[in-house]
Design a protein around this nucleic acid. Sequence first.
DNA 1: AGCAGACCTGACCAACCAGTCAAGGTCGTT
DNA 2: AACGACCTTGACTGGTTGGTCAGGTCTGCT
Lengths: 217, 217
Amino acid sequence: MAQTEGAEKSGTRAEMREETERAILDAAEGIFAEAGFGGATMQAIADSCGLPKANLHYYFSSKEKLYRRVVERIFTVWLEAADSFDTDATPEVALRRYIERKMQLSRDYRYGSKVWANEVLHGAPIIQDYLETTLRSWTETRVAVIRRWIAQGAIRPVEPRWLLYMIWATTQHYADFAHQIETLNHGPLEADQWDDATETVCSIILRGIGIDPGAPA
Amino acid sequence: MAQTEGAEKSGTRAEMREETERAILDAAEGIFAEAGFGGATMQAIADSCGLPKANLHYYFSSKEKLYRRVVERIFTVWLEAADSFDTDATPEVALRRYIERKMQLSRDYRYGSKVWANEVLHGAPIIQDYLETTLRSWTETRVAVIRRWIAQGAIRPVEPRWLLYMIWATTQHYADFAHQIETLNHGPLEADQWDDATETVCSIILRGIGIDPGAPA
DNA sequence: AGCAGACCTGACCAACCAGTCAAGGTCGTT
DNA sequence: AACGACCTTGACTGGTTGGTCAGGTCTGCT
């Protein structure tokens, strides 16, 4: 009994290592999000996951390496989410699904979004290469999709980049500026507020580009 | 000749003091924006404005006091800009003017916007009182204006807060995420790109809430 | 059992940073 | 001219932080 003390203790050596690394990454994500790279201390991260500081350096050789891994992990989640854009569906379905997914991520991965925002805000000193390779190529494929929609007359002609930025900005705002939103809201958003906000974002953007939401396909 | 060496040297004592303080605040805004509060060092700010570090402490007793003054200054600029919302104009005119002004500010006060974003991102540890007093009351008056528009049938019924957040998020994105945008754009946005982005943001939001932009008033 | 390698950690160090201070310089006023 | 208030600055300090390391513990394998 009491077999699972620290939620690790079972599994192979490799599994335990992976689990410890994940615990450190989780803690680091929260601390980096709240304090920034410069403001975060290894000691605070260690305290947050109940490990001695020296142990962190056993798994991650330096603060910067740890930070990079945190950012990489978030970026991966976002890229996977971005696949909801990939379908051959109509603009209405594809965009609605993408926006809904991004709102969901803002709700579920608030800290990850904050770390990313923080990194870009400061000029992306650590993950500049990601911007120039993965993000750029992803963006270009989506821009092409949007251009095709425009050519087909399915949506109003707008520069695709400005549309993408609008979606990113609006959805991530609910994570990055959560503190401001919650202050103005006198508390965290309720489930129905999240739903209403999501629906409002969808409807404004879809109508804004000339789609009448709810109209039969 | 060469009377104005460091752009200070003339004027009364009080004027010179004010000018020095402004130079420090300008330098601090840039450093805080790029490095965050924790990552910024007083030495870096001192170097940035060509003053010895000890001199900064003569004008601003502590790093936190200096930071607070930087944030306060930005907040003031934003509040003044917000007056473009205050008119009795139609929703189309009022919103268009507000969005255009906010885009302008993102272009002209990029660093200020970044410092604000950084502060809110980290839970507003320094300026929480501003959120609870000034920002909250400002927001409530604008929410009331938007509700009146809805009651008059001038715009589609949407929760006013989500609309405001959308405007803030989208416009400020062009300052806070400027680095990401410029990376994807292979360089800074040109003047016509700024104009096009502004027009696109306006048109999507206005159409999105049921206004047909360009229609005669 | 016993060994090798992976894992853990308290104590320590060099680097760095916000803030201080005392001594010297400059300006307005009488 | 001369006095006091204001301004400037190099040198210093107490405290903090990222990173190291030696010695200990645990695990899986033969």
